[in-house]
Nucleic acid binder design. Structure first.
Lengths: 144, 144
DNA sequence: GAGGTCGTAACGTTAATAGTTACAACCGGC
DNA sequence: GCCGGTTGTAACTATTAACGTTACGACCTC
C-alpha cells in the first residue's frame, strides 16, 4: 500500500523522550533521537513539530534547548499520534470521478465511502487502546 | 498515508461484472469496465489478473472474449480482494534499522510489530464482514 | 485469415515520504 | 554582549509506489 513509517518514528521519538526524562534529563535533542531512530534530525523535528501542534510535546530553543513531553506517556494513545501525523484516509477513491451515467459508476463511491468509514472507525478504536506507556513497556520487555 | 485506490477499483470491477452477468451477459471486457471506472483498460486488466490468480474471476481470449466471475459475489469478501491486490503491511517500520546499541532502538521494532499485527488482524476481521454482494447492494441503493 | 480481446512489457507521469543542506531565530550561560 | 548549541523552516534531491499510456504478441471465435 506504500505504507509509511511516520507513526512508527513518532512513537519511537515519544518513547525515547519519555524514557530519557525518567532517567532524570530535562530535555532531549532531535540529534539524539535521530541517532536512535537512524534518520535525520530534520525528520524528527518535523514530526515533533506536528506533535507539538497537537499538544503532546514542548520545545525550547537556545542553549540547553530540546524537546520534552507536555503530557504523560500514559495519557497519549497511538490514535492521538496517528491523528497528529497521518492526515489522509486509509483507502482512496477513484482518481477521476467514475462514469455517472453508469449505475455502478454512480453508486460506487457513496457505497465504498460508507464501508470505509466503518472500517476506519474500527481502526481508530484499536489504536486508541494502546498508550505510549504500553509501547515503552513493550520496548523494554524485548529479550536480550 | 498516500492511500491508493486499488481496493476501490477492484471492488468496482467485480461489482460491475456481477451486475452485467445478472443482466444476462456472459462476459465483460476491460474496455467496458474501464469506461465505468474512468480509467485505462490496462489498469483493469492488471487488477483483474491478480484477482484471477486468486481464483475470483476467469478470462477468455479471442473473439467474444472478456471476464467473468469464477465465484458468486456473495462468497467474495473485501478481505479476499484486499489480500489479492494489497500486498504490503498497513504501517511501515523504520527505513534504516534503528541504533541497536540504544535500548529504545533495540526494542522498538518488535514492540511496534506486535501492536501492528493486532491492529491488522482487526482490520481483516472488518474487511471479512463485507461481501461483494453487500457492495453491489449498496451501490444500487444510492439515491437518484 | 480477419477482427477483437487478453497479457504483459516498457515507459512516462504524478504524488508522497524521506533525506539532506542551509540558515535565520532563539536563548542560556559566561 | 556575544558564543555556542538547538530549534524552525525553506528548498532541494532521492526514492518509491501507483497510475496512466502505448505497443504488440498471443489467443480464440467466426
Amino acid at each position: 500500500m506504500s505504507a509509511n513509517s511516520r507513526l512508527t518514528i513518532a512513537a519511537h521519538a515519544l518513547a525515547w523522550i519519555g524514557l530519557y526524562q525518567r532517567q532524570g534529563h530535562a530535555v532531549a535533542t532531535s540529534e539524539q533521537i535521530a541517532t536512535s531512530a537512524n534518520t535525520n534530525p530534520v525528520v524528527i523535528r518535523r514530526l515533533l513539530g506536528e506533535l507539538r501542534r497537537a499538544g503532546f510535546v514542548e520545545s525550547r530553543r537556545g542553549g540547553g534547548a530540546g524537546w520534552s513531553l507536555a503530557r504523560e506517556l500514559e495519557s497519549i494513545t497511538l490514535l492521538d499520534v496517528y491523528e497528529a501525523v497521518e492526515p489522509g484516509p486509509l483507502f482512496a477513491m477513484h482518481r477521476a470521478t467514475p462514469d455517472q451515467e453508469c449505475v455502478v459508476g454512480y453508486g460506487i463511491q457513496p457505497a465504498m465511502q460508507g464501508i470505509y468509514d466503518g472500517i476506519e472507525e474500527s481502526l481508530r478504536r484499536e489504536l486508541a487502546r494502546v498508550t505510549l506507556q504500553d509501547v515503552l513497556r513493550d520496548v523494554l520487555a524485548a529479550p536480550r
